[in-house]
Amino acid sequence: MARLPGTDGAGDIAERIRERRGGTLRPLDRMLLHSPPVADGWNSLLGAVRQRMTLPADIRELVVLRIAVLNRAPYEWAAHEGDARAAGLDDRHLDALRAEGASTHPDLDERRRAVVAYTDAMTRDVHVPADVFDALRAHFGPAELVELTVTAAAYSMVSRFLVALEVELPARTGG
């Protein structure tokens, strides 16, 4: 059970969040709305990360799911698994992301392994060794490197918020 109750989701900021989310609020949103200014900024930042970057969707979702594993954030995994599959990640890729040695896993190509190594370094140690960053340069330009870094930083924030407040996804109903 969440450490705080969700809000009722009323107000202009809640409406902006609903608009970005296709008409609904998630438990995460209802928790954030305890502080409307934070919820508004969060919505703007995550809206840009989700909808306005050039970083390929499979890479974005790879980062999100790996962070969910590293930070033990099941909400985040559940919230993004469908998006990851829609972006082209399959069972082999998802299993690789759950593995301790994901950055060397044979079911991930060289590009994805480099992204996992970078995500691991940013999430576990904050400091990124030069060789880990340099491995990305063969696959991404400057804008994508910035977007990759922002994605990992933003979803580390998301997962830490979810875990600290024990935010849970609503129970699934139906098929």
Rank of each mutant, 00 (worst) to 15 (best):
A2T: 12
A2M: 07
R3V: 08
R3L: 13
R3F: 10
L4M: 13
G6R: 08
G6Y: 11
T7R: 02
A10F: 01
A10M: 06
D12F: 05
D12M: 06
E15L: 11
E15A: 12
R16I: 02
E19L: 10
R20M: 10
G22Q: 04
G23C: 06
L25H: 03
R26W: 15
P27L: 04
L28Y: 08
L28G: 06
L28T: 14
R30Y: 02
R30M: 09
M31G: 10
M31D: 04
L32M: 07
P37D: 13
P37L: 10
P37E: 14
V38N: 06
N43S: 15
S44L: 09
L45C: 10
A48C: 06
Q51E: 15
Q51M: 10
R52W: 08
M53K: 00
T54R: 14
A57Y: 08
D58S: 15
I59V: 15
E61F: 10
E61T: 10
L62D: 03
V63C: 15
V64H: 12
L65N: 06
R66W: 05
R66T: 05
I67E: 09
A68G: 07
V69A: 14
N71P: 00
N71S: 01
R72D: 15
A73C: 15
P74M: 04
P74E: 11
Y75C: 12
H80P: 01
G82C: 08
D83F: 15
R85L: 11
A86P: 11
A87H: 11
A87Y: 13
G88H: 07
G88Y: 11
L89G: 14
R92T: 13
L94S: 10
A96S: 05
A96L: 05
L97G: 08
L97T: 12
R98G: 14
A99H: 14
E100Q: 02
E100V: 08
S103I: 00
S103H: 10
S103F: 00
T104N: 08
P106R: 14
D107K: 07
E110F: 01
R111T: 07
R111Y: 02
R111E: 12
R113K: 12
V115D: 03
V115G: 04
V115W: 05
V116R: 09
V116E: 08
T119E: 01
D120P: 01
M122S: 03
T123D: 05
D125E: 04
D125F: 01
V126L: 13
V126P: 00
H127C: 00
V128T: 13
P129W: 02
V132H: 01
F133M: 03
D134M: 09
D134F: 09
A135I: 10
L136D: 02
A138M: 06
H139I: 01
F140D: 09
F140Q: 02
G141Y: 00
A143P: 02
A143R: 11
A143C: 00
V146W: 04
V146E: 00
E147K: 07
L148Y: 02
V150I: 15
T151S: 04
A153T: 14
A154F: 05
Y155E: 03
Y155G: 05
V158C: 04
S159R: 00
R160N: 13
R160Q: 13
A164N: 04
L165G: 03
L165D: 04
E168K: 05
E168R: 13
E168A: 09
L169K: 08
P170M: 06
P170D: 15
A171V: 14
A171C: 04
R172Y: 09
